[in-house]
Design a protein around this nucleic acid. Sequence first.
DNA 1: GCACTCCTGACCAAGAAGGTCAGGAAAGTC
DNA 2: GACTTTCCTGACCTTCTTGGTCAGGAGTGC
Lengths: 153, 153
Amino acid sequence: MRVSAKADYAVRAAAELAAAQSEEAPVKGERLAEAQDIPLQFLEHILLELKHHGIVRARRGAKGGYWLARPADEVTVAEIVRAVEGPIAHVQSTPPEDIEYRGNSKHLQEVWIAVRASLRSVLEQVTLADLVSGELPSVVSDLASSKDAWVAR
Amino acid sequence: MRVSAKADYAVRAAAELAAAQSEEAPVKGERLAEAQDIPLQFLEHILLELKHHGIVRARRGAKGGYWLARPADEVTVAEIVRAVEGPIAHVQSTPPEDIEYRGNSKHLQEVWIAVRASLRSVLEQVTLADLVSGELPSVVSDLASSKDAWVAR
DNA sequence: GCACTCCTGACCAAGAAGGTCAGGAAAGTC
DNA sequence: GACTTTCCTGACCTTCTTGGTCAGGAGTGC
């Protein structure tokens, strides 16, 4: 139940691309790496994955760089996380709806399904545009505005 | 963003213990392993961790076995997951409230905080008693009752 | 004393995490 | 056409995690 460095980096880089979308020129990998303090060569691999998933595009050579394949308000955080981490909330590497529970754990399936649904309700609502503007959907800001949400446990 | 085999096993074993709580006699590891189809020796390690976290108790020898340290309605799934997997929703192995984001990813922190909060809102609500009775809290059953929650994505 | 059951640490193979390195292939510039 | 720039790709590497197994020790009950 943790977020990998890769996913974190991917979202941060994508946020930079979202912010640069108005510039009308591609953003170099090096600039992204510096802006978000991400190891350049590692970032390049991540951007390549995002490209393969149709989230970003790229051009090589001088004046080359990366840009978002779609408007920033049409790209969700969920999409980016899935692109680099794979499916969300799998149990033992299989989707919760495919697992058969027996005996007294029969209803555990519904719990894992609910876990996945609640993750989706956050990650699928936040777009890159929300992220750079700071105007997060109410689902998110409500959750994050509780004092309790900020304390470790 | 996945649930490990260990966490899944731990909750399932704990559910069996919860159901056996009325029996007034300890449950042997072997019976738990068979009931939930978990490799016995692996399960023993898991139960040991749960014991160290004060969730279960155990006695050795003939007539020995495991039992819950507290009533089943006072043990949440969140507690069990934390016992075997560590803190929920850490980013790069550090809690989201400790990370400093800069530039266009400044608001990503709130997103990860919201992710953690939404996970907590599910996992901290479900007790072992809920799990064996099948009467899950409304937060959970509402999420799990949506058709959409059951489809892969 | 003996059987039973948990307790504990060591070990192990495979895979993931988090990178680095080296070179190739487009694109633009002179 | 040569050169520079920047992305593209695969190979490699170290450390940690996952998902276990093995062997023996230590309480407990009869």
